[in-house]
């Protein structure tokens, strides 16, 4: 594998503007970034520094205003809305701070969501969902609704939902931000093992230095620019 193949995320002069009232806001400004396959990257910085914007661009749920963005070998700026949706289904798993599980669906049904539009049989879907829930340690809670789970368990269901499509890239927006210390440790341990044992590339936004310490590399952003890089 050459260097080119080793890079999963390639950002060049990546800029994002949007209008707020009559002024233009630029949360991300001419950012250059390379993320290797299997790397566990933490993004830190104050509120409004552009962390989540960068995460959303990398996850393909927002589009850059300028610059180049290539993720998993695909130039995301060239994809239509529909193709971008299918690309997300196969290449990215997104973990939210507030879990964002569908409240009327059980843990099993929430995890199954990304597979509903795949050409998998019911049995194949069931096997994948069950094994993914087992991976996050929730095989005994698969028929529980989110309201019947603790915050930590909900976040693990959300991680299972992000993992079930076997994406190369996991993006996590403050995944421990709404959890107590014990649950946060369990989630961080899970992310670490996904990186170490399963080779997943993880980009995680966090305010918590403890959480960032689990990453291979920590990037600091301020006012939409990268400040420094440090190894964990």
């Amino acid at each position: 594998m050459n260097d080119h193949d080793d890079i999963l995320i390639r950002c060049h002069e990546l800029t994002k503007h949007y209008r707020r009232g009559d002024r233009t806001v630029t949360p991300l400004q001419a950012l250059d970034l390379l993320v290797s396959r299997g790397e566990y990257l933490a993004l830190m910085g104050p509120s409004g520094s552009g962390k989540t914007t960068l995460l959303n661009l990398v996850a393909g749920i927002d589009s850059p205003s300028e610059g180049k963005l290539e993720v998993c070998g695909q130039d995301l700026t060239q994809l239509s809305r529909g193709r971008l949706a299918r690309w997300r289904a196969h290449h990215v798993g997104y973990i939210f701070q507030l879990y964002h599980l569908v409240p009327v669906l059980t843990a099993f049904e929430n995890v199954e969501l990304p597979l509903l539009l795949d050409d998998l049989s019911r049995r194949e879907r069931r096997e994948r969902v069950e094994s993914t829930l087992a991976l996050v340690g929730l095989d005994d809670r698969m028929h529980h609704f989110p309201r019947e789970l603790s915050g930590g368990q909900e976040q693990r269901v959300a991680i299972a939902r992000a993992l079930v499509g076997s994406p190369e890239l996991l993006v996590a927006d403050e995944p421990t931000g709404d959890l107590d210390r014990e649950a946060a440790d369990a989630v961080l341990g899970l992310l670490r093992s996904l990186s170490r044992e399963y080779g997943k590339t993880i980009v995680m936004v966090t305010h918590d230095p403890r959480a960032a310490q689990a990453a291979d590399r920590i990037l600091h952003l301020e006012k939409g620019r990268l400040l420094e890089q440090e190894g964990a």
Partner: peptide, 16 residues
């Protein structure tokens, strides 16, 4: 609104 955005994030096209 949020729930539908989550569906799109996990790969549902807008049409779905």
């Amino acid at each position: 609104v949020c729930e539908n955005a989550v569906l799109q994030t996990v790969g549902f096209p807008g049409t779905a």
